[in-house]
Nucleic acid binder design. Structure first.
Lengths: 186, 186
DNA sequence: GCGAAAGTGTCGCTTAGGCGACGAGAACGG
DNA sequence: CCGTTCTCGTCGCCTAAGCGACACTTTCGC
């Protein structure tokens, strides 16, 4: 019996793992205290009990770090209820969509917002694409991800208080049956 | 304005501080799960996300670590209510004694017990002696510490359910007359 | 009783992290 | 306007931590 983790991860120095966790946790707690743009790399390094230079050895800047944290969070939310376990395509997409909307919805009150939305969106898209890879071929996964995330962001701005179930149903219908059904009559 | 901490501490590498804290916390959490003697150095190192060799670079063995933790805890309990703030010797000793008995009492249910008592006792004594140093000359501090801790351990075995206030009063009465002469002015 | 398994304490070698300094850009306040 | 201050990103040197192996001792389980 071979450990598959060893195959994918060529071995991670425990110091690296620890340092990265310290840095992630540092930003998380700081975000609970003040907004993102008023947080400096020094703040993060200090809170993480890590040297500033060490920070740069792991993340190019604080945006990259935030991105990593978002993606980490997204990944867990996406897996809720094991949506990929659904055999029927329509049911699978609905389940995935529900998680995407849920994630986008819960970040309405987050301190990050405002001018970070583009990063947020692309982070979700990237993570969702990876999440769908085992089920769809890359090109399709990417398209589905864009569609779902884009719709979710749109819903968030237009009618965040409305139930998102109908919106998801419509999106899934289009994705599964093709765009022809939604075409305006000629 | 000179930072006094810089004078006393010749500079502590943050990695060292972090590692030691990780190791301390590791043993603390492990003690909440199982008893001391069934905890191996490996267990501690693993929980602390620290290499076993690193453990030995900081503590000679697990007993030394436990000792350090005890002393750390003792130090905080001893300072409760700022007993050294008392100007009257009798009141001061009573306040200190109360904290000592409180500490010894709260360790009745601790998983460490049984055959660790000698270490426990000497750790408390050592810490208490240091604690009393600014107020009493070393020799006196040591004597007072031995008396208080020894009495507390005795009380713990003989009549742990009895109120310890009278016992302390008695000890203080015995100590005061001889001890007053060794106390620093003011 | 004995071999296997697990724990201990230590040692050299390798690698990640801390330090201090640097030049550069941005923000501020006189 | 220009100095002051702060943050950024990077570099070379040094040190702490990780690794794997070693020779023991202890503890089991058969």
């Amino acid at each position: 019996m071979v450990n598959t983790a060893l195959a994918t991860e060529p071995r991670l120095d425990p110091r690296v793992a620890r340092t990265q966790k310290l840095i992630r946790d540092a930003l998380k707690t700081l975000l609970a205290e003040k907004n993102f743009e008023s947080i400096s790399v020094q703040d993060i390094a200090e809170r993480a009990t890590v040297n500033r230079a060490t920070f740069y050895a792991h993340f190019t800047d604080k945006f990259a770090l935030l991105n990593a944290i978002i993606r980490e969070h997204v990944a867990t939310v996406l897996a809720d209820g094991d949506p990929l376990g659904q055999t029927e395509t329509r049911a699978l997409l609905r389940a995935v969509g529900k998680n995407v909307f849920a994630f986008v919805g819960m970040h309405r009150t987050c301190r990050i917002d405002r001018d970070f939305e583009p990063q947020l969106e692309s982070a979700i898209e990237a993570e969702l694409t990876e999440f769908l890879q085992p089920t769809f071929e890359h090109c399709t996964a990417s398209l589905v991800a864009s569609a779902l995330v884009g719709s979710a962001m749109n819903w968030r701005h237009q009618a965040p208080k409305m139930d998102f179930a109908p919106a998801i149903a419509k999106i899934v219908d289009v994705l599964v049956d093709g765009v022809a059904r939604g075409r305006h009559p000629i």
